[in-house]
Computed example of a mutant assay.
Amino acid sequence: MASVKQRADGSWRARYRDAADTEHARHFATRRAAQAWLDEVTSSMVTGRWVDPIASSITLQQYYDDWSTRQIWASGTVTAMNLAMRTCTFGELELNRLSRSHIEGWIKAMSVQGLAPGTIKTRVNNVRGVIRAAVRDRRLPEDPSAGVKLPRVRKIDSAMRIPTPAEVAALLDAAPSWFAPYIALCAFAGLRLGEASALQSGDIDFLRRKIHVRRQVQRVAAREVSITAPKYGSERAIDAPDELLAMLTEHLRTTTPLGAARWLFDGQYGEPPHQNTVGYWWRLAKRDANVEGIRLHDLRHFYASGLIASGLDVVTVQRSLGHARATTTLNTYSHLWPTAEERTRSAASELMRSVLASSPATATGL
Rank of each mutant, 00 (worst) to 15 (best):
S358N: 14
G48W: 01
L193Q: 14
R192M: 01
D137L: 10
L284E: 15
V41T: 09
L284Y: 04
S349R: 15
Y64H: 02
H323R: 04
T122Q: 03
S354A: 15
A187P: 09
H297A: 11
A84V: 04
S334T: 12
A324C: 09
G91T: 03
V112W: 08
F179L: 05
R31T: 00
S43N: 12
H323W: 06
T255Y: 15
P144C: 01
H102Q: 12
T87M: 13
Y280V: 02
Y303E: 00
L185F: 09
T328A: 09
R209D: 01
T362G: 05
G105E: 14
T164K: 14
R287L: 12
M45G: 01
V78N: 02
I120T: 06
V225E: 13
H297R: 13
W282R: 06
E195L: 05
N290A: 15
Q218G: 02
E92C: 09
L284T: 12
K231M: 04
P360R: 09
P117I: 03
D205F: 06
D157W: 08
R343K: 09
F90W: 08
I204T: 07
W281P: 01
N276A: 10
R209N: 03
F188N: 14
V278M: 08
A33Y: 05
L366D: 10
R123G: 01
F206T: 06
W12I: 06
D239W: 14
G76W: 12
W37P: 04
T328Y: 02
A184V: 03
P163F: 10
A14C: 11
Q6L: 15
R70T: 12
Q216G: 14
H27K: 14
Y182G: 05
S334E: 04
E250R: 15
D18I: 07
L336H: 13
K286S: 06
R295C: 06
E292F: 14
T59P: 08
W50Y: 11
T339E: 03
A222G: 05
R319H: 07
H102V: 00
G322H: 07
L191F: 12
T328Q: 10
D157F: 14
P117K: 02
T254P: 01
G259Y: 12
N125K: 06
V127E: 00
A29Y: 08
Q71W: 03
R7N: 11
T327D: 08
A14I: 12
S145M: 04
S44G: 02
L336T: 06
P144L: 06
N125Q: 11
R236M: 10
L150F: 05
Q71V: 01
D203P: 11
Q35L: 09
L248H: 02
Y303P: 00
D143E: 09
H301E: 05
R7G: 04
H301F: 03
V4G: 02
K121M: 08
D173R: 10
I131H: 00
I183K: 11
V225F: 05
D39K: 11
S68K: 13
T255A: 15
R138A: 08
T77S: 08
C88Y: 13
P230D: 04
A134H: 01
A175W: 03
A8S: 12
L115P: 01
R132A: 00
M160S: 12
T79E: 06
F265M: 07
A289Y: 11
A159V: 02
Q6P: 05
A29T: 13
K155H: 06
W106E: 02
R97H: 09
D39E: 00
A189I: 09
